[in-house]
Write a protein that binds this DNA or RNA. Structure first.
Lengths: 233, 233
DNA sequence: TTACTTAGTGTAAAAAATACACGTATATTA
DNA sequence: TAATATACGTGTATTTTTTACACTAAGTAA
């Protein structure tokens, strides 16, 4: 640390768009701020990055502290550093998105701490205006995902481990905000060859039960030449 | 600036991959470092971001200081913040790429200053190992471009203002690193409807001269719903 | 005028995306 | 146990996009 010109230092943070899918709705995790500035406003979960951790570690830590979850698909999508985005001074923010499985929502206890009065799962369609420039960050991240999902199936982490093709289609429809054709959707999804058909059917529905499928990471990696995991910076 | 927890400050910089296309080769601008660490190594042009400028401004400034050019297509593509990427301490780097027109290369005087002994246009195919983790940054940026160009025509800034379709095809071939079919390439490129055919032919060739075309920003914006310019963070 | 070099062009085949409808299985209820 | 209601699961024809492929035309140079 001897030669670095320290007068160039800036405060910087990680903010996270944490997506969940519950009751047929796409939701994101927001905290309600308990401190000025923007006291009482909703904001993306975020935190300062320590000088002893990588940015990914910081993002993982925030995800963990916000949801108690680890090992989640997470992707850095943009860094925001406009002047004036924080009223108290220059702050650089690296933004990530993550997708998590909301089925055991009971296990997920959104944080309450001195900064956050409460944390809530907010349906994307009901999003209020957020603190700082977080609305803008959200829009940019959401657009990225919408874009990406069109050519790369990345949404499985949002579903329960076992899911039906109809559930998967509903998820796509919510993210893309349009109706999809059932037969074409299934054809295309199966053609990706990344799903494993199970010998099991869904339970507890009052109509013909659908087959369950699992996401197959091995096949995914084979076809998309990518691991579904953190990238190392 | 009153309440920000300053002990979270980090040093951070912008690095730039500046592409040029010259003599049928894709090149990037590198500086040869004149200072430790990595004295004598080649590195991406980069600099510290001041607390009084946005990240984009810093990137523009670096581009200007490295090449004397302004108003160039530039895109942020990733932020690198691994521990240990700088031997003297924690440094966060926001990476951009830019594409510039190398035809008036005489006007471009790569910087010489105390940090940089010299600046050179290095053919991508001859890239040496770079200082810090710059090789990795370069690979990531190059991959992004290669990816993007496949579905969005962004390479015009590399060509002279007026160019032939064959020149454009050569550029694509160099970036994608594969031969393309002439008829299919032209068909597809013209179908984008972003080129303006000029009433003019190339000069000074010892064979049949080809028609010249111009990139049409208006049409581009119309089709891709995007301005070819800086985004404001 | 001839030789040389690149420009410029079309069509057929294959692959991918889209549009579209009905019989089947299961649970519920009358 | 029969009727009803609900979502399941499937195939084909059409259109669009992508790919493969080769020759004549124009201009320069000798």
């Amino acid at each position: 640390m001897e030669n670095l010109p320290l007068h160039f230092e800036s405060v910087f943070t990680v903010d996270c768009i944490i997506f969940g899918f519950d009751e047929g709705e796409l939701k994101i995790l927001l905290i309600e701020r308990n401190e000025d500035p923007f006291k009482g406003w909703f904001a993306l979960p975020g935190y300062f990055v320590e000088n002893t951790e990588s940015i990914e570690s910081a993002a993982e830590r925030i995800l963990y502290e916000s949801t108690g979850l680890k090992g989640i698909y997470m992707e850095q999508f943009h860094t925001f550093g406009a002047l004036g985005r924080h009223p108290q001074g220059r702050v650089i923010t690296v933004a990530y998105y993550a997708m998590i499985r909301l089925t055991n929502q009971k296990d997920l206890k959104p944080v309450t701490n001195n900064l956050a009065k409460q944390a809530v799962w907010m349906p994307v369609k009901d999003m209020p205006e957020l603190a700082f420039d977080h609305s803008r960050i959200f829009r940019k991240g959401f657009e990225k995902i919408r874009n990406k999902i069109s050519y790369q199936p990345i949404a499985f982490e949002l579903l329960p481990e076992k899911f039906t093709l109809t559930q998967l289609q509903h998820l796509y429809e919510v993210i893309l905000n349009k109706k999809l054709d059932k037969r074409n959707f299934r054809k295309k999804m199966l053609a990706y060859d990344i799903l494993k058909e199970l010998d099991e059917k869904q339970k507890g529905v009052s109509y013909r039960a659908a087959k369950l499928y699992k996401f197959d990471k091995r096949k995914y990696a084979k076809h998309f030449n990518k691991e579904l995991s953190f990238s190392k910076d």
